[in-house]
C-alpha cells in the first residue's frame, strides 16, 4: 500500500545516474524520502531523526559506485545501517549456572505475553529443557486459565496456585515458584505477568516486585509489531520500571512494517531476540535482522 523506498529514491535520482558524487541537495532530497519511508513504517520520530543523520553522514562521504545507481547505493547504506542497529551480536538466552533459569515476560496489555509463555515452553522443551510456566497475571479475567491451557498445548507444566481474577498476590506466587521449580526439577521458569501501561506506577512497581522476587536471568519485553510512535515512550518506561535484557516482537505474521523494532532497539540498546509469527505455539522464531530491515524498507 505504501510506496517502497526504492520507488521513492528512484524518483529522486531520475537523471542522476553516473554523476560521480552525490551533491548536498541530492542528499537532502534523499533524506526527505527516507524520512517518509521510515515514518510510514512506524519508526519513532526521534529515532528517524538520528538515523537519518547517520545515513547522511555516510552518503556524503561515499563515492557513487559505477556498478550501482545512486538509489541502489543509498538503499544499500540505509539497509546496512538498519541491520547494524537491529543486529549487533545475536544473543541467545543466558541460562543460569544453577537451575532454574528464570525468564520473566513484561509488556503492554494484549502484546502477546501469555501466548509467548506457551511458545517458549514448547521451544524450550524441544531443546531438552523442562520448563515451568508461572501464572503471575492474577488480574486479567481468566489469564491463569489461559496460561494453563497454553501450557497443556505445549506439553509443559504450569504453576498456578492462585485463581486470579483479582485474587492472589503475584509477587508471592513468583517467589514461591522458584522453590516449587527446584522441588519438581524444572530447569527453566517462565513467568507470565499482567499487561500494564508504562505510566501505571502501581503496576510497574508490582512488576519490579516480581522481578526482585525471582531475579530473572532474562527479562523479555514483549511488544506488538503494530505499535506506532508510542514504542519509544513505552519501551523507555519498561526499561526504567522493570528493566529488560531482550525484546520479543509479536504479530509479525501481519503486514505492519514493524518500525518499532528499530525504535526499541535504538533507544534501549537491548537486542531483539525472538519473533512471534502467529497464534499457534509453533509460530515462533529467533529474530532475523536482515529480514526485519527489508520489511521496514518495504522490500
Amino acid at each position: 500500500m505504501f510506496e517502497t523506498l526504492s520507488d521513492r529514491l528512484d524518483k529522486v535520482f531520475t537523471g542522476l545516474r553516473g554523476k560521480g558524487r552525490l551533491s548536498d541537495e541530492d542528499i537532502d532530497a534523499t533524506a526527505r524520502e527516507i524520512r517518509i519511508a521510515l515514518l510510514e513504517a512506524d519508526v519513532a520520530l526521534p529515532v528517524v531523526r538520528s538515523f537519518i543523520t547517520a545515513v547522511k553522514e555516510r552518503a556524503r562521504g561515499s563515492e557513487v559506485s559505477a556498478a550501482l545507481n545512486p538509489a541502489q547505493q543509498i538503499i544499500k547504506i540505509v539497509n546496512e545501517e538498519l541491520v547494524g542497529i537491529l543486529g549487533g551480536e545475536t544473543r541467545r538466552i543466558r541460562y543460569a549456572k544453577q537451575s532454574p533459569t528464570v525468564i520473566m515476560l513484561a509488556g503492554l496489555q494484549g502484546a502477546g505475553k501469555t501466548t509467548l509463555a506457551g511458545k517458549l515452553g514448547r521451544w524450550l522443551k524441544a531443546q531438552g529443557h523442562t520448563p515451568l510456566l508461572v501464572a503471575c497475571d492474577l488480574q486479567r479475567p481468566n489469564a491463569v486459565q489461559q496460561l494453563s491451557v497454553v501450557a497443556g498445548q505445549a506439553g509443559v507444566d504450569v504453576y498456578a496456585p492462585e485463581p486470579g481474577n483479582g485474587v492472589g498476590d503475584p509477587i508471592a506466587v513468583a517467589r514461591d515458584s522458584i522453590d516449587h521449580a527446584r522441588r519438581t526439577q524444572h530447569d527453566v521458569v517462565v513467568v507470565d505477568t499482567a499487561g500494564r501501561l508504562g505510566i501505571d506506577a502501581e503496576l510497574m512497581a508490582q512488576a519490579a516486585g516480581i522481578r526482585d522476587a525471582v531475579s530473572p536471568d532474562e527479562t523479555l519485553f514483549v511488544v506488538d509489531a503494530m505499535i506506532g510512535q508510542d514504542a519509544v515512550t513505552t519501551a523507555t518506561a519498561f526499561q526504567e520500571g522493570v528493566g529488560f535484557s531482550g525484546v520479543v516482537l509479536t504479530k509479525l505474521d501481519g503486514d505492519a512494517r514493524g518500525g518499532a523494532a528499530l525504535s526499541v532497539r535504538h533507544v534501549t540498546g537491548q537486542p531483539i531476540m525472538f519473533a512471534s509469527t502467529g497464534e499457534k505455539l509453533a509460530d515462533f522464531d529467533v529474530f532475523h535482522p536482515e529480514r526485519m530491515a527489508s520489511r521496514i524498507l518495504g522490500m
Binding site: 505504501f2 513504517a41 506488538d224 505499535i227 506506532g228 501481519g254 512494517r257 518500525g259
Partner: peptide, 11 residues
Amino acid sequence: LDATTGQNGVV
C-alpha cells in the same frame, strides 16, 4: 482499534 497502533491501523 488499540490506541498504540501505528500506520497499520488504516489497513
